[in-house]
Design a protein around this nucleic acid. Sequence first.
RNA 1: GGCGGCAUAGCCAAGUGGUAAGGCAGCGGUCUGCAAAACCGUUAUACAUCGGUUCGAAUCCGAUUGCCGCCUCCA
Length: 482
Amino acid sequence: MVVILPDGGERYLSTPLFAIQEETNLRFYNTLTHAKEPFVPLQPGKISIYSSGPTVHDRMHVGEWRRFVLADLVRRYLEFKTYAVTHIVNISDLNDKTIVGAEEAGMPLKPFTDKHLQAFMEDVETLGIKPATQYPRASDHVEDMVALTGRLVEKGFAYEKLRSVYFDISRYADYGKLSGIDLDKIRLGATVDLDEYVKENPRDFALLKRAKLSELKQGIYAKTEWGQIRPSWHIESAAMAMKYLGETFDIYTSSRDLIFPHHENEIAVSGALTGKPLARNWILSEQVLSGGKKADRDAAIPNIRDLLERGYSGRVIRYWLLSNHYRKPLNLSYEALDQASQAIRRIDECISGLASLEGGRSYPDLDQLLYDMKTGFSDAMDDDLNVSSATATIFRMARRVNGLIVNNEMDQTGARRIIDAFKKVDTVLNVFDFAKAPEDPEVQKLKREREEARRRKDWKLADQLRERLVAMGAEIRDKKIM
RNA sequence: GGCGGCAUAGCCAAGUGGUAAGGCAGCGGUCUGCAAAACCGUUAUACAUCGGUUCGAAUCCGAUUGCCGCCUCCA
């Protein structure tokens, strides 16, 4: 007997096959439904994520990195929970900004975008972001975009006007679900000059744009039945998402400010073609503010390299971007970064204390301690990635462990297990320091000299050496002179 | 005007009905040659405002205020 399930087969998810995954209490806030809901993958054990990628015309400022760090957090946490994740990040290298940027730089488009893509990848590494499974580039997928547009025209969802092709929103009844927008009430022309365009309805959006003269000169166009065109951002992203992850995938990560019109338009494109939702879960980061205003590229917002030059390490920046809940606005300030730096140091100190531990008794309640941290961490993360609560668990653990070390109640075996537990948690957060860089010989030499001075009770020399060591950035942890 | 979001200590921040986690900074102490680190103690009887529901509200309901974002060719 064949049963057609009205819910598209979702009830299969309660069969034993899914039991392992189902035991988890993982819940995400889904912007599509405006509610926290249990996360259930489309396929057992496998998860597909698509993330709104960079526009490679400039170095991204630190605010924009929030959505990439969020994507990384989602991915790492799912992998922590033993899912196999496919993660696609699109590279937007064919648009007004890159074309204008290349022109201004006096470079052909490809080398220009290559250069900025390389900068992007540098920052990915600095921030400890796991490289995506693939980084498809818009410029490599124009044929796919033209093909999708052709299908939309055939189905009557798109029309050509003066050699551009537009999506006809009036044909797509579900338009506006993600943003909750009411098309009759939006203010038309609030941010664009509508007179410049010849759409049948000002609410329609471009799929393929007639190539401009400057673009034709540079050869940045594709020949199609509608003329020489360049694809729009919306069709670019939708085409790559569907090509790499299929008609429907598990998670779309991005940031709130891209909901309308961009994501709404992608949903319309894919929904019109397949009748299916593009992504089941939309996980979107709230914005980074600077001085109370949106941090955008026009303002003087520092990028990752600027912050490195100011002395903040990649993991400090990452921790700062991560440590506030992703659905709350985050205010950029050096004070906040300083606080993040201090906070991380607390854990670093604990880890290095464990690593250099000698002697000590074994701690009888170690298993309980480890269990508390593990469950505290994953319970918090299961609840829509509550990083603040998760880190609170870790800090409590650190304080506890430091106390045990002070009282000689921890031995090397226990220390090793605690470090392993920190490492496990850090596969998700990726902010702690386990491999202290070996000290350079000069530092080691000064430290020996200082110890010698202390033994001789030559405090003046010892203090001078301490000043020099601190200035060199060395850490000093004195013990009682025997 | 429409839609969406945010408001908790000096700063950052968790907490959706049971009496305010955690971090930073501060203060007192232990340790130290003195510091640093670490440890112990301490730091919100107004959770934006007003009203309501309840035995009980930061949490639920209504209204208000302030701030932020988006509004279709910038991505």
